[in-house]
Simulated assay, not measured.
Amino acid sequence: MIKLAVANQKGGVGKTTTTINIATALAATGWKVLVVDLDPQGNASTGLGVDHSQRESSSYDLLLGNGGLEDVAVATIVPNLHVVPATVNLSGAEVELVGEPDRTHRLDAALNASGAARWDICLIDCPPSLGLLTVNALVAAESIFVPLQAEFFALEGLSQLLRTIELVRDRFNPGLSVVGVALTMFDRRNNLSGQVADDVRAVLGKTVFDTVIPRNVRLSEAPSHGIPALIYDMRCPGSEAYMSLARELIARLPEKAEAA
């Protein structure tokens, strides 16, 4: 199973929207996809139609060792797509795990268990912070997918995230790589969006995906209906952009994914 952490410690950059719609696009092409919602807000779970009443077990239980992947994964309305939902209990996991010697490797152990073989790829939706939950995701992942809002302050946050990635590489996961950076909430009417995009591409080069995700009201509406935008309105500019982005991502994934 390929493991990707969708991470950016800055909130409001379209991270969860990106996770949901990339997962849906991959599932639509026949991949067996697992989303691990590691954000205590649980927005990825809600956006995939998993009601709070369906969250008897969650990613909190996965981290605390109270259940394996097959015990906590829930089917979504999207064929081939399951989610490990999040509950507010997850906000206490960092405190509960702080004294554990394997606290940074809990998610890694869970995703390497035998039950994980039923999925081809796992997308880990990280919280908007660089705490123990995000570190667990970076230790477990093979690669990081970074959604980046096309605005000035996002650049400062990106540099902090890249420093954290280097620390995780040095201490826990030397094979960790950045699969790509996706520009989100791009407003073509705003000169600043274009300027930020140019700056990011000048620094990171081909690491930045060609596809940019535009500001689109349909992307914002879809979560309130509990469905991904690709299902809510597959022809809107946001959905079409995410389909294009998914194709780019597939081209960057390891060769072993081709047999999936």
Rank of each mutant, 00 (worst) to 15 (best):
L138P: 00
I231A: 09
A202T: 09
S159L: 11
I22F: 05
R163W: 00
V178N: 11
S45F: 09
D170T: 08
L155A: 06
A75H: 14
L63E: 02
G42L: 02
L192R: 00
T104I: 05
L123V: 11
R201C: 04
M243F: 14
G157V: 05
A93Y: 02
L162P: 01
L69V: 14
G99Y: 14
A27W: 04
L123H: 05
I2D: 12
V72D: 06
L133W: 00
G14A: 09
V84T: 04
L183F: 13
E166S: 13
L176I: 06
R118Q: 15
L63T: 02
S53D: 14
A7D: 00
L133Y: 01
I231F: 10
Q9N: 06
T19W: 01
V203K: 10
W119M: 00
L192G: 04
V203E: 15
L245Y: 06
I227W: 07
A93E: 05
G238M: 07
R106V: 01
V217Y: 11
R118V: 15
V6L: 00
R189K: 10
V95Q: 11
H52W: 15
L62Y: 03
T16D: 12
D108I: 00
S239Q: 09
V88K: 15
G92N: 11
D210A: 06
G175K: 06
D120V: 00
I165S: 02
P85Y: 02
K10T: 03
